[in-house]
Amino acid sequence: MAIASFVFYLLAAVLVACGALVITVRNPVHSVLFLVLAFFNAAGLFILLGAEFLAMILVIVYVGAVAVLFLFVVMMLDINFLDMRRGAQRYAGIGGAVGLVLLVEILLVVGAWQLDPALAGTGAAPTPAAAEMHNTRALGNLIYTDYVYLFQGAGLVLLVAMMGAIVLTLREREGVKRQKIADQIARRPEDEVKVVKVSNRAGI
């Protein structure tokens, strides 16, 4: 167990440090890379909890796709960091106040939250023991049975967001030549090639 707690404190410390670095380093590309490292450590924490499915999904979705696209965009941005710093100092007071209010609210909610002891064990799905069911199957059983409507609803929300992004960026431009594969394949020699018998010195 000593190793497990050592690994936990290592991952947690690196995670918190990366989180702090994400918002303090000057270079936005470094910022995204620290975010990636933070995701990794969070995945490590999931593995320590025995939630290996969530850990892998975190790496695949956030590190493998979302952060790559972040990095993609941030690398091409041309930001003047000094200007951003100046703005940050101006709004530091208000920002800090908002953050403080949120922190107090979270503390009030979480600190006072406890489950009614009479309700224990009445949940839709009591957590199965890790030995009898590994968590990929446990999650699948829950998501596709008891919570299927919520799951589908979340999918629809994402679909709407995706369509919104496409509608916002799609533009029809006149005079753009596009390759139409179907047209190319549909061409037949009979339509395109004509055999002409040309008599001498007459031309076509």
Binding site: F53, M56, I57, V59, I60, V63, G64, A65
Partner: peptide
């Protein structure tokens, strides 16, 4: 999933 994660990295 591990293989998929590593190859996506």
């Amino acid at each position: 999933l591990y293989l998929f994660a590593v190859s996506s990295l």
